[in-house]
Design a protein around this nucleic acid. Structure first.
Lengths: 217, 217
DNA sequence: ATAAAAATCCGTACTGGTACGGATATTTGA
DNA sequence: TCAAATATCCGTACCAGTACGGATTTTTAT
């Protein structure tokens, strides 16, 4: 084997960023930058060509952005660890990137030692998420609770919630009537009241309300 | 004013835990344990009675668990900061607790200094989440990607996805036809194909698929 | 006790979407 | 280059749900 160094590919559309990272990483004995790329497509090729262990990538890039790049790599080479290195502004993409399969997320204003630490963690099968990023995630999780306040204000009755459940299970009014031993007409009335209370007027709006408020999973 | 100490209430059904925490916190000059409780109900009363700044609570408690306690406090005294202190096993409750309004989550095997640090952070309007807890959250966010594999296997065309979007925006077939400058009949055909591919046969099932796969937010 | 809220029920005309069973043109990938 | 996939389009009968505008009984909270 030629070496046991961790093989890294850098992807960023800012040449200066790439140069800075490369010189910084070259000081580390167990790391080796085997390729660089200025857009997502080149990054994909470089990772495959050099059989890289870790890809360090920006989100915003021409041709193919970080998300598309991640998705593509998951298909053809899922063992490569992906560390996203972005500015704070791009943090909005964190959730989709996580779901696409990245292993770490770190901000560009983070110190060198943190970056190197992150690379090692990823290479050992671990994950690394910047503190600020973690905070942001927690904040957004909390924000979901705002939506839930809807359902409490709307004051749906138990019967109405029950009927929403059954509607969402793809039962029609006649079936729901049978199941609850009430007239189809009564179900219609409940439905009308539900629409009024939830401020919707189509089954689609109702379903969206139900999802947003955790009435349906 | 009697004092400027941070007023703390401790809630845990294990007396030993309470005693340990109390003696530990009593060493800190700017903290004061103003009340203790062995269940959620007592905790609620104690917080209100002593006008506490911070509540440190377990999740599992008799009478009223940590979630119910948090929800109750948010209604009657939303300014109290809630720090959840649990064993790793209770980590599954983290998401609902976050949505209920806690400001911090810390594990019982964490060191004293971390706990005191967390209390100060909360009292200053900040948040504190244990590293392990953060990891868990990230892991569960990633797990959501499992669902998304559906949508990739199903191989919906761009046009079909576009139409799903428009359907979910409560447009009917005629409107969608106008918007895309195609016949209503064509929209119907796409709809049929979408149902076939997604293995559904009602608008409800389709919406559920779209939500589960992130096609609609 | 009693008023308000919730749950129950109905007729009739109308609209949006489905089922069924096609056909033709355009893109795209191997 | 050429087959497969995708996108386009149509007729007709039918069904589920809506709109509109009610009424009566039961439950719940004060």
């Amino acid at each position: 084997m030629k070496s046991n160094k961790i093989k890294i590919v850098l992807a960023d559309d800012h040449r200066m960023m790439i140069d800075g990272l490369r010189s910084m990483l070259s000081d580390e004995k167990d790391l080796e930058v085997v390729g660089v790329a200025y857009n997502g497509k080149e990054a994909l090729e470089a990772v495959l060509k050099h059989n890289a262990d870790v890809l360090i990538t920006d989100y915003n890039m021409p041709e193919m952005n970080g998300l598309e790049l991640t998705e593509a790599l998951q298909k053809v080479k899922p063992d490569v660890k992906i560390l996203v290195l972005t500015m704070y502004g791009d943090i909005t993409h964190i959730e989709e990137m996580l779901q696409a399969g990245i292993s770490g997320y770190i901000l560009k204003n983070t110190g060198n030692d943190e970056l190197i630490n992150a690379i090692h963690k990823l290479h050992n099968g671990g994950t690394y998420y910047d503190d600020e990023v973690a905070q942001e995630i927690f904040r957004s999780l909390k924000d979901n609770s705002i939506k839930k306040q809807n359902v409490e204000k709307v004051n749906l009755t138990d019967r109405e919630k029950e009927i929403i459940q059954l509607i969402s299970q793809e039962h029609n009014n006649a079936m729901i009537g049978d199941m609850l031993s009430i007239s189809e007409r009564t179900v219609e009335s409940h439905r009308k009241n539900i629409y009024r209370k939830t401020n919707t007027n189509t089954i689609i709006g109702l379903l969206k309300f139900a999802f947003a408020n955790g009435l349906v999973k």
